[in-house]
Design a protein around this nucleic acid. Sequence first.
DNA 1: CCCTGATTCGC
DNA 2: GCGAATCAGG
Length: 202
Amino acid sequence: MEWTEETISRLKELWAEGLSTAEIGRRLSITKNAVVGKAHRLGLPPRPSPIRRGVKKPEAESVAKPDGATAAAPATSPAPTTKVEAPDTVTESTQVVPKPAPAATPAPTPVAAAPAAAVQPKVAKVEKPAPRAPAKPKPVPQRISDPDPQKRRGPSCCWPIGDPGTPGFHFCGAVPLPGKPYCAEHAQIAYVKLRDRRDNVA
DNA sequence: CCCTGATTCGC
DNA sequence: GCGAATCAGG
């Protein structure tokens, strides 16, 4: 495989759009392994993996030395969960991380999903059969009346401002368009027409 | 078995 | 650097 700037950028785009590695592979006429391998090498943001292979291999080291003394492991604390999370959520509003889903994802349901680092919030409309997550148009009737983002508890624009995990990160919070997760301003950006990309061999 | 993505390892 | 083979979870 010849990874030219062209193919690499194409890979990045498709990767950022959340397509499966296999799907990307199909589009580029390469195997998913090639896609994954390259993406990994490029340091592309890992997307939700079904597995967690992080478990280390048989490493001879963690043998807990019974010779006591100053054991580094405080067994007295069964729950030393040192969480380093809770960056700085905006207000008390239930913020959901917007995953620019294909087509329209109207449901403001808390989709607990962390966006892959700095995923470009662009909604792409793929014509190919989506592997999973079929669009489920479910118009949620909700009245928008209170224009104050700080007070209203209803739906709020979940356009991410800044990078998730960084201190300044927050969501737009403005009043979203009816049936849309974003406000008018960000909906424009979100629902940009995917530029024509008819491609490759077949 | 199908799907998925991650890592390993020979090339 | 590349990607098939392999692993591993859903």
